[in-house]
Design a protein around this nucleic acid. Structure first.
Lengths: 371, 371
DNA sequence: TTCAATTTGTACAGTCATTGGACAAATCGG
DNA sequence: CCGATTTGTCCAATGACTGTACAAATTGAA
């Protein structure tokens, strides 16, 4: 059943422990008796697992439940916010964003810094984590970056933005510095999708596509609540072709979505110099025809995804959100015209934090507490 | 950990039992000692699980291992081919194909029949299963059909080919007739993909796309070795648009793949009356230009899938296979021209049996013996 | 032929996470 | 103040697994 050295019984215990912890985490405040009812574990087991969780500092009691029912009052349990911290990093070409989150997913600390002259990416990352971890017990680090990462070795295989050599040994350097902390290096798009599922204000969807529109156009794919990776190079939504007779793209294909819907192309097609300017014009009813080219292409791309994967929801994020509801409505309208599944949910992301670091933190959490 | 009434210990036992059985199944002939080494279960546990499997009639001893090593000779174990039978059905508009497979996946019996006048689909299916099951202990039935099925209730939600009313209660009728047999109703595309993974002669890929080209163009998607279903309506590869300025499709969109690459369109674009005729012409170097329209469109579609999902392999099946290697080569050539990931494996299906029933049987198997 | 060495498979006792029942603790309402 | 009710812990029993001991079977060398 297992290749780890653990015996099956230990695995069961671990699974039940995770189950209980996740339940406490999800519910905010919950009693042992409630846990027993929900999990259908025995009262004894719940008690002993909770005792252990308290011993590890992950859970604490937080007062007495107030109800008007008869009987002994229940002692409530909650996650101990400072029982451990997760660091999430969003690495771009020259900028490192690093966020520290508590066990209850409250943002504790944020750093954003660019690389100083001659500083390597690995050093910059180490530095950032060092700053975050001052006086805090970090139990997980996930680094999101644009590129293909081998999930087995955590090493970068390729990236259009980052130099592979810079990144290649980040994992080993980090691991050496903090041998007992779980470190993950992941593609940023997948982390965004995970963040959308967990922290977006649109019902929790286990099959979800997040579309990220900035300088490029990417997609994160969630299957059964988990980040889909395929052979590692998926999510290149920007190079989905919707017009095989169209312009040649730098990827070698023709009529790729990126030629219509990336931010630079949007600005160029609409002859505006910033998204802010375009947003204003849209609100005055201007540039409708030009924007239609963009939204129609996007609608075709999204429809292609929907026909292929039929996710529960499509979440659009990235800087295009500044274009406002007019833009989203235009996408939806084009979509409805051509779609087979017309009522598919298409929404803007409503996450205020950095979705890459937030998704990264959630990823660490899931790895640590079982999913 | 579980919502079933079973205790965790029972779940462990079941998991280990499945592990052992699948190992025996996969290896053909294997000794208890080998199982111990591979699974790292204790010798005692292996012995007791095997004993139980033999008791249930799923496994039998099959002689002594011949080796020249010293020590006591190992008793070999194999799956008892007639320990139980799986029925797989491929339901089309008016034709029911039903195959019976032994526990070791040897084809035991095949039926193909059309519905007689006034006979309902459910009755036809019942009849077919009845014929198959004569003197045979059926332990699983999976019915593959074109349409959207709710995996929870096993009822048809919609189908472009079958009448929903005909199908709606197949599951309950079957269940009533054979209450202790597992019955599944699944979309046919997914079953094809599963069959490709398990029975195709191209390394076992856990992330695989099967493209089925017949009157329509469909896709089956395998993620982590399991059939991907999304909200249920995925796999509509035929309605992926690759040319948003193209012809209007009956689905409401424009330039869908089905308008280029479905068999009727292929024949029309190449002005031939059958795939056989076209195959012959291709082998004489004729119709190259006309076929290029088809293969180029397909290449764009496949490239879109690859960029989005990056599966390990794309397997093309359906009646287009009769067009032979010329056709496949043309697809690959167009693909290489435009692809970002140029070395992606694209192959024809080499499954000789009916992939829908075969995939269905494998599906039953996986459900029964844990995956 | 006989015996040491080796490998296979079973028997038995011990381990450990879980469970159910008994029970103490705590609270409400009459 | 006491019965009813709910919460949470203690304890013995269950059951699946493991390790050790051991019997069975086979090879090869003395």
């Amino acid at each position: 059943m297992t290749d780890t050295g653990k015996s099956s019984q230990q695995l069961i215990k671990e699974a039940n422990m995770n189950l209980v912890f996740r339940l406490i985490h999800k519910n905010g405040a919950i009693s042992r008796a409630d846990i027993k009812k929900i999990t259908s574990l025995s009262a004894t087991t719940v008690s002993s697992l909770v005792e252990e969780l308290i011993g590890e500092g992950f859970v604490e009691e937080c007062g007495i439940k107030k109800t008007k029912s008869s009987g002994r009052k229940a002692v409530m349990l909650k996650v101990k916010a400072d029982g451990g911290f997760f660091a999430g990093l969003d690495v771009k070409k020259n900028i490192i964003r690093a966020d520290l989150y508590g066990l209850d997913f409250t943002l504790e600390k944020s750093i954003e810094r660019s690389l100083s002259d001659g500083e390597s990416l690995a050093m910059g990352i180490m530095q950032a984590i060092g700053t975050l971890s001052r006086n805090k017990k970090i139990i997980g680090v996930t680094i999101g970056l644009p590129g293909v990462i081998d999930p087995g070795t955590n090493s970068l295989i390729s990236s259009t933005v980052l130099a592979a050599d810079d990144v290649k040994d980040i994992y080993s350097i980090l691991k050496e510095a903090m041998p007992d902390v779980d470190v993950y290096i992941k593609n940023n798009s997948g982390l965004i999708a995970l963040a959308e599922k967990e922290f977006g204000n649109h019902g929790r969807a286990d099959n979800l596509i997040s579309v990220d529109i900035n300088d490029g156009v990417g997609a994160g794919i969630l299957v059964d609540g988990k980040i889909y990776e395929g052979s590692g190079m998926g999510g290149e939504f920007g190079h989905m072709s919707v017009d095989f007779g169209g312009r040649k793209c730098k990827c070698g294909s023709y009529g790729c979505l990126e030629l219509y819907a990336s931010v630079p192309e949007i600005l160029s097609l609409t002859e505006t110099s910033s998204l802010g300017e375009l947003a204003e014009k849209l609100s005055f009813g201007q540039k409708k025809k030009e924007v239609l080219q963009v939204t129609r292409a996007l609608a075709f791309g999204i429809n292609n995804i929907v026909n292929l994967l039929d996710p529960e929801i499509i979440v659009i994020g990235g800087s295009v959100i500044t274009l406002g509801e007019h833009f989203l409505d235009a996408i939806k309208e084009s979509f409805r015209e051509i779609a087979l599944i017309k009522d598919k949910k298409i929404v803007y992301s409503d996450i205020k934090e950095n979705p890459v670091t937030l998704g990264g933190v959630r990823f660490s959490f899931d790895r640590m507490f079982g999913f």
